[in-house]
Amino acid sequence: MSLIEVKDLEVHYPIRSGFWNRVTDEVLAVDGISLDIEAGETYGLVGESGSGKSTTGKSIVGLEKPTKGQILYKGKDITKPRNRHELDYNQDVQMIFQDSLSSLNPRKRIEDIIAEPLRNFAHLSKDDEKLRVLQLLDIVGLDADALYKYPHQFSGGQRQRIGVARAVATNPKLIVADEPVSALDLSVQAQVLNFMKKIQRDFGVSYLFISHDLGVVRHMCDNIAIMHRGRIVEIGTRDDIYNHPMHIYTKRLLSAIPETSVEHREEAREHREAVEKEFQENQDRYYDKDGKVLPLIAVTDTHKVAMPQDEVDELQREDD
């Protein structure tokens, strides 16, 4: 059984208007997505701004109330607050945010920031708590003198590691990481990603890794779902997505990643423009008449794509 099963999740935001301020329309931020996160894996959720990837992450943590659908943990639907409480869900699922400065309370010392989830869930003695905080700092490579400092005294990368330490404090089963390295410099990003991988090796935690950076996602993730307009356009293993992309939107994202090879830049641009042209001209092959993403169709056991069946068959023939 998967660690977390998301089933037909929908999150709608109401649009109010008119004299009585009634709900006249809805934004379908998340419009029916399903995915299974296995224990100990890193699951990539990729999309551009407005694709619904962050809303999905927040729903899984419980920060956003789904309109429809279920999120199953140990067989129970945790969109119901009673089940969340019963399963200690809030202890087992933690979150890392993109902006480490605004997500850490500026008036609290690092000791208190990291100890906060412990105080909520673990109820340790004062000494044990301090020991645990020191241990957590050590896991993310920070010294003991960090204990009494405040968030603004650290660099962006150090703050992000503090965020990781706080998320790990309660020995969670799943950490939802929303663009955890997008605001960081390259060399600092490498450090944070290494720590995240090390923690996974040592403690077997799963990550839901939300990002727009396909290079980082390829490095981190075992399974990947590509989101567009609130739905999943393609889902599969790293190999499926990067080496056998089928949906035009996936191809479009992949073609937009800048490569560090100077020689092939003209070819890369031509390829990118060809993909963009196909994306613009063949909307009706990949999206329904309202511009919605089509239902997913299984290509292989691991690989699903939102295209009509005959298109899939054709592409597969070409592949063979």
């Binding site: 390259l186 600092v188 490498a190 990603l193 290079g215 390829r218 490095h219 981190m220």
Partner: peptide
Amino acid sequence: LLRSMPQKDSENDDLYVIEGS
């Protein structure tokens, strides 16, 4: 810098980290 970028097929390795800050 170039070495600390995530590469194709780098998924099983740690990324290179420049010492200090």
